[in-house]
């Protein structure tokens, strides 16, 4: 499923703004597209991963709210709760994901409106280079539906996007992420 890229083609203007996220203007799509909030953990400054995932998600027809670098958990929770998205993607590569992301997941899950929103994490989650998705059970225990790491991470995310948009927004996500 390839849809139009939208105006990120012209990477113009700031793509994120402090506190308030900048959402790319899209040409009015035929039906309202599924929405994803893209974030990272508070300590992680890397953005090439976010830029890559932003483009990828848009190319798949998703409307992306990219919260940028070093996102405070409060910002993520407030932005997501204001308009619950169909998916939350957390990307982190600095090696602190295993340490810092469980608290993020608990904070998201503590908000009633976000209890059932599919929440996935991926990237480089520890400092040892683990690529086994089962290496961090604490992440799923804390509320992540899927841990996408290793060579298969991006294909698994694409498969998840497909099943989420086929099943309708946010429904049956538990099946979708498996």
């Amino acid at each position: 499923m390839t849809r139009m890229t939208g105006p990120i083609a012209v990477i113009a203007a700031p793509t994120v703004s402090r506190g308030k996220p900048f959402v790319y203007q899209r040409h009015q799509p035929p039906e309202s597209p599924p929405r994803v909030v893209l974030s990272t953990i508070p300590s992680d400054a890397h953005t090439w991963n976010l830029l890559f995932l932003h483009l990828l998600l848009e190319e798949q027809g998703w409307e992306v709210t990219n919260l940028g670098a070093c996102v405070p958990v409060d910002t993520l929770v407030t932005e997501s709760a204001a308009r619950p998205p169909d998916l939350i993607v957390v990307s982190t590569v600095n090696g602190h994901g295993a340490e810092e992301a469980p608290a993020l997941a608990r904070a998201v899950r503590a908000v009633p409106a976000l209890v059932r929103v599919p929440l996935v994490i991926g990237g480089k989650l520890d400092t040892e280079g683990s690529v086994d998705p089962d290496a961090h059970p604490a992440l799923t225990e804390a509320g992540f539906d899927a841990v996408l790491i290793g060579p298969n991470a991006v294909p698994r995310l694409l498969a998840l996007l497909d099943s989420l948009s086929q099943r309708g927004h946010g429904r049956a996500y538990a099946d979708a992420v498996r």
Partner: peptide
């Protein structure tokens, strides 16, 4: 180029 920081204009590539 490609910098997402809010204080960067983001008009270069």
């Amino acid at each position: 180029p490609f910098c997402l920081h809010p204080d960067n204009a983001g008009r270069t590539r």
